[in-house]
Amino acid sequence: MVSHFAFDVAHMLAGLIVLASLTMLYQDRLTALINVLAGQSLLLAASVAWQGHLQGSAELYLTAALALGFKAIAIPWALRALVIRLGLHREIETVAGIGPTMLAGMGLIALSMEVMLPVTDAVDPVARQDIALALSVVLIGLLIMVTRRNAASQVVGFLSIDNGISLAATGARGMPLVVEISVAFSVLVACIVIGIFLFRIRERFDTVDLGALDASRGERAR
């Protein structure tokens, strides 16, 4: 069985990840939102590495390294560059009132405890806590996506859902394919980032000079 200390550390890291999710709910600047996301990913990397230590699994260390490099450093950096390039960093996003959103967030945490804890009493305690907390991260991520209008903040919400799922996957002892799945998810995430890029650039292109666009199209068709 896992020692008390090991369990407490795992529990604390997972709890901090949920706290980061709650913090995201009330950020009204995109850059701040991205910073919190980077912090959450960093906590996730630490949590995965701790699980790797507990389970003695090399695969999990690899997953932790991926989370650190990709989710905590590369993607937030790319998102920040994108936001600054598009001039979104000065905008203040209207977020639905902090009070109600936070209450909804806490309600979601309570809901996921209520749903997951009773059905997982046969699972080992670390995985049990991780799964319940992971579900609340997933649900709060959905809440972020629903309450935001901006494409970039939607991506941040989606990335935090992804963090929640990684937390659940690593809590499940010996879950195979964890590495492969995180790679697949990272590719997905990269595509999303490219997606917004194209989305926004295209929007600009259209407003900048429609005539030039038509001309180049006609030329290429010939």
């Binding site: 996506m145 989606f158 929640g164 799922i165 659940a168 499940a172 879950m175 799945i181």
Partner: peptide, 11 residues
């Protein structure tokens, strides 16, 4: 989002 929920179910 759909596929993320499906992954949670798979886990």
């Amino acid at each position: 989002v759909g596929i993320a929920l499906a992954l949670f179910g798979t886990i």
